[in-house]
Write a protein that binds this DNA or RNA. Structure first.
Lengths: 166, 166
DNA sequence: TCTATATATTAGACATTCCTAATTAGATTA
DNA sequence: TAATCTAATTAGGAATGTCTAATATATAGA
């Protein structure tokens, strides 16, 4: 149901009207599946739908759809930008995960990504370093040697530095 | 099915024998649900089960169970150690997510955590910093100011440092 | 051994979500 | 307008997984 509401929410913003066929295509299911789901969603007050007419979201339905959209976005971003998962795969995985995550976990994940992308120390260069780590195999020693100086300084937070030889 | 195999796999290591009742308790379902699932799993060659006897995993079944165990562990670790989700909640979420993740994504996640915990720059102090960030609200400015020096140096990778005043 | 309790199984139902095949409604066009 | 094509619906069935109530089996105590 959540998937349907998300799909309808998206289509609603992309197109003038939302039809059964569009939903079926978007979700990769057959039209009868859509028909019966629309009946269910209508009964539960999440869409307004009369046979052969266009589909409209109710307020409740739009809320659910939007929330799913948001979750999808957060997960997709994490999967592609941090874990460097292929875009299409990330889309699939996000689609499945978005239903199982609690709001608390999702919020934490958002915090995490904000932190990584807001703080230079945790930002782009850091991610690049992570990429190197993955590309060129596990090299904890090299990694340690390289970053020790920074790390030491960081432990002391704002204490002025005495550098060790790298 | 995967949940059942994971539960059986766990119980198998904890106890001498695995009974319907134990599985039901572990999974918080009623015994008839377990009975019928065991029939299904038996038909698919994932467990060996004769009525009223003890449950045994086949090789295939144990493989699935172990894989689920592994996934659960990775996710639980990420949720508790990085996102600082409450242990019990993390358990629930991991339980739901473990079925939806691809191996590729899971491997990336493992790499990510290995990296964070192997490299000092990305290690414990970094997580602590993330915690502060969450606890005391979003403070991108403070964060930027504090870590700029390290970040600049890091950009140049192994270039000897010329420190700026903090 | 016999009976009471604990454990497990069937029987039968329900919810969710999907499918194929056949039919009907609506839109297009000659 | 009639024929055609596209879109949507109904009918009927399958898979997964859950439950309650009733029944059967096993185990342990008297």
């Amino acid at each position: 149901m959540e998937d349907y509401l998300e799909a309808i929410f998206d289509l609603d913003q992309e197109k003038k009207v939302v039809r059964v066929k569009d939903i079926a295509k978007r979700m990769d299911v057959k039209m009868p599946s859509v028909s019966s789901m629309l009946k269910t969603l209508n009964d539960r007050g999440l869409v307004r739908y009369e046979k052969y007419e266009y589909v409209e979201l109710t307020r409740d339905g739009a809320d659910v759809g939007e929330e799913m959209r948001r979750r999808h976005g957060v997960l997709h971003k994490f999967l592609t930008e941090i874990l460097k998962i292929d875009d299409a795969v990330a889309d699939e995985e996000a689609c499945k995960m978005e239903h199982t995550l609690s709001s608390a976990t999702l919020d934490s994940l958002i915090d995490f990504m904000e932190f990584i992308q807001t703080c230079p120390r945790a930002g782009q260069s850091w991610l690049q370093y992570f990429e190197d780590y993955r590309q060129h195999g596990r090299r904890p020693e090299a990694c340690r040697a390289r970053s020790e100086a920074f790390s030491d300084e960081f432990e002391k937070q704002v204490t002025p530095a005495k550098k060790k030889p790298a």
